[in-house]
């Protein structure tokens, strides 16, 4: 069978295009799993000005089951105000991170391992404002890896959390040294 040079050229061009398109964003399943379970992966959005000493936010979590994703979302809510801060939005100004040192998580790794453990202190500082299982747009089913991405609306006791970290010697008080 004889293939015309014109068809051959067309096939070559198509092949080259498909290679460029596919090579840009192809992550393996393990890459995606690492991304979802990364301790740096917080998706947080402030939802308004909280009442005195609190921050209200919508926060996402990943998990194999919805319950696991909710637990991770709660941890993310607390972790985001400790390490990263929350950008401004919905009439609320940006919330600064309680710890200003970008490497604070690594420096106090033992403390935060215990703080964010299953029965750790972190849960003291969460007031969950949505009851029951998230549904609709707040509950997304993922195929690879299999699991759920869910959003909860949470109220973080920001002042209490800051005071706890100050008392434990992790954060510095504003009047430290005076």
């Amino acid at each position: 069978m004889k293939v015309s040079p014109r068809i051959l050229l067309f096939m070559l061009i198509m092949f080259a295009f498909s290679e460029i398109a596919c090579s840009q964003a192809r992550h393996s399943r393990s890459d995606r799993r690492a991304h979802y379970s990364s301790s740096y992966n917080y998706e947080v959005e402030i939802t308004g000005v909280g009442s005195d000493g609190t921050k209200t936010m919508k926060v996402w979590g990943y998990g194999r089951r919805v319950e696991d994703a909710i637990i991770q979302a709660k941890m993310n809510a607390v972790a985001s105000v400790i390490f990263r801060g929350i950008p401004a939005g919905h009439g609320a100004a940006a919330t600064p991170a309680i710890l200003r040192d970008p490497n604070a998580g690594e420096k106090h790794a033992d403390y935060f391992d215990e703080f964010f453990s299953a029965s750790g202190k972190y849960i003291n500082f969460i007031n969950l404002t949505t009851d029951g299982m998230p549904s609709g747009q707040d509950r997304l089913r993922m195929s690879r890896p299999r699991g759920y991405k869910v959003a909860i609306y949470a109220q973080v006791m920001y002042d209490n959390l800051r005071r706890q970290l100050e008392a434990d010697g992790i954060a510095r008080r504003l009047d430290h040294g005076f």
Binding site: G91, A93, A94, T95, P96, Y158
Partner: peptide, 9 residues
């Protein structure tokens, strides 16, 4: 309430 945390930082 919205601005004081940023100011104190």
């Amino acid at each position: 309430l919205s601005h004081m945390d940023g100011f104190n930082a």
